[in-house]
């Protein structure tokens, strides 16, 4: 009984959002709870931007769900109540767009390239991509099914390296964790992951990385429970401040 008017108001808000999709200011207050689904590699930079948005709008709480891009796409397609999806994979974002679940078309806001991560001091003496063919080293790459794994396959193919990894990790942070623990001599991760790991991990860039540039699309979702805050968040990510934060974290920005 009581739910009637509230539901009606919600529908009005949703309808209102649909009509001003061109980017006109919504006029509504940025408040309530904002749920952002984002690729694991965005953990630090988006958490920082979320804190900034919360500071600018005291009534707002930003919640994140960080996971692999394909897990996120699956969850959104299965009806997860997210407001914003920031993916590390244009193909996975395409699945969500094809399902008609995005509000507008996704835009690329950042890109990322692979780098070799080694534990501080480089105990395995790794110098370049060719060392991934050394069966005596403990090596981690991402599984081919996840984006960092398909990128790894591309750079190995470009460099003509027959990689001999000991493990194919389910996501890039899992690969990085094994470097931080010193359990592998090297892992192929993103430049941003090396930057995020601080002093425990050293990064070795390599020329073939340009063969697999990973683009990050972001989009508000059509069924967003909080479309006003979703718009504010996406605008912040794509603003000059957002680009600076992304560049500080090791991303390339458009």
């Amino acid at each position: 009984m009581r739910r009637g008017p509230a539901l009606g108001a919600l529908l009005l808000v949703l309808a209102g959002c649909g009509t001003d999709a061109a980017g006109a200011p919504a006029g509504d207050e940025v408040a309530g709870t904002l749920t952002v689904f984002a690729a694991a590699s965005l953990t630090d930079v988006l958490t920082g931007l979320g804190d900034q948005l919360e500071a600018d709008h005291p009534g707002l709480e930003v919640q994140f769900s960080f996971a692999g891009s394909s897990a996120l796409a699956t969850q959104v397609v299965q009806g997860a109540p997210a407001d914003v999806l920031a993916s590390a994979d244009t193909e996975q974002m395409g699945l969500v767009t094809d399902a008609g679940l995005t509000d507008g078309s996704p835009g690329v806001f950042a890109s990322n390239v692979l780098e070799i991560a080694v534990p501080a001091g480089n105990p395995g003496g790794v110098t370049g991509l060719a060392d991934f063919a050394d069966p005596d080293l403990a090596l981690a790459v991402c599984a081919p099914a996840v984006p960092c794994g398909s990128a790894a396959e591309e750079v190995f193919a470009a460099a003509g390296v027959d990689a001999q990894p000991d493990t194919q990790e389910d996501d890039v942070r899992a690969a990085l964790t094994k470097v931080q623990l010193g359990e592998v001599d090297a892992a192929l991760v993103y430049a941003t992951d090396v930057r995020a790991a601080g002093d425990a991990v050293e990064g070795i860039p390599f020329p073939e990385a340009g063969q697999a540039v990973n683009e990050y699309p972001i989009c508000r979702l059509a069924a967003a429970p909080n479309p006003v805050a979703a718009r504010a968040f996406v605008d912040l990510v794509r603003s000059d401040a957002g680009r600076r934060a992304l560049a500080d974290a090791g991303f390339r920005t458009p």
Binding site: A140, A143, P165, D166, T167, Q168, E169, D170, A174, K178
Partner: peptide, 11 residues
């Protein structure tokens, strides 16, 4: 997947 990793045929 954390301790043994993931490699076809081995783990």
């Amino acid at each position: 997947i954390t301790f043994a990793g993931n490699f076809p045929g081995t783990t």
